[in-house]
Amino acid sequence: MEKIIGFYPGCSLEGTAREYNESVFSLAKLFNIKLEPVPDWNCCGATAAHNISKKLSLSLPARILSQAETAGMKSLLVPCAACYNRLMVTQHELFENEELKSEVEEIMGMGLNSPIRVLNVIQFIQEYIYPGLQEKLSSPFGKKVACYYGCLLIRPHDVLNFDRTEDPQTMDEAMKMIGAESIDWPFKTECCGAGFSVSRTDLVAKLSGKIIKDACDRGAEAIIVACPMCHSNLDMRRNTIDRLLGYKTEIPVLYITQAIGLACGLSVKQTGIQRHIVRVDWQRLNSCLPEKMIKEEEDIHG
């Protein structure tokens, strides 16, 4: 029987993170789940809104929640980590504070009755994909991967109550289930620079550079992410990062849904792999190590 759950794509998934959207939908289709988008959804306001105005940063996500509630949705899948964070924080703040809630309801001219279950992509995978995963696994993902969680998927812990803040494991578990080897590394939850991608590219290159370098140095063959912002900083900004690091890195960045999709036999096109700026070419991955280091190794070993 087909299962139906609510779906909030968020703006990135309609633009620069199209492949994330495609892979989520392909995966859901494969597991017989129907994703029902929130009717007439709006942007959650992201970082800009809570930097400029508190009321605005609560009202925009509240409108989304209200729309979902009106459509009768019980649980809502939010693949974008930033949107997930904003929706959870808003729900937390409003249902804790009756006064604030009625003020926000007045601002948006809509009501909110009860909290909705907001699921991030990993919770969705655990709940809906895990049960049938072993059956559908056709080509195990035998790669060494670095799982990168970023900030907004797990912090603040008090509100999200998901995984551990310092050394989260849920993505690693999922990767092990599809036959990949997940490495232990210290940059799992370090910030990539997030919303400064356009306004302060220099800072993003510096922060993301550290992440890419560490994953490469530890011999990872791919970085696995669950956030469109992390992806665009690590993938789209690779030229700037390489310039800063002083050598070319070729490690691809995949969404968790793409990795699972590939392991379950979905095609490159169905998972949108061809849309990445850093080409996914497993044969070339051996050159992931910086040239200088390869030379050094050759010198040492004669």
Binding site: C11, E14, T16, N42, C43, A46, A48, N51, I52, L60
Partner: peptide, 22 residues
Amino acid sequence: SIIPFHQSFLDMIRYTGRSYEV
């Protein structure tokens, strides 16, 4: 740099309801 980006972002939402990267 940072503040105009936030303002562009919010203006985009104000007039269309969503943010479009272009």
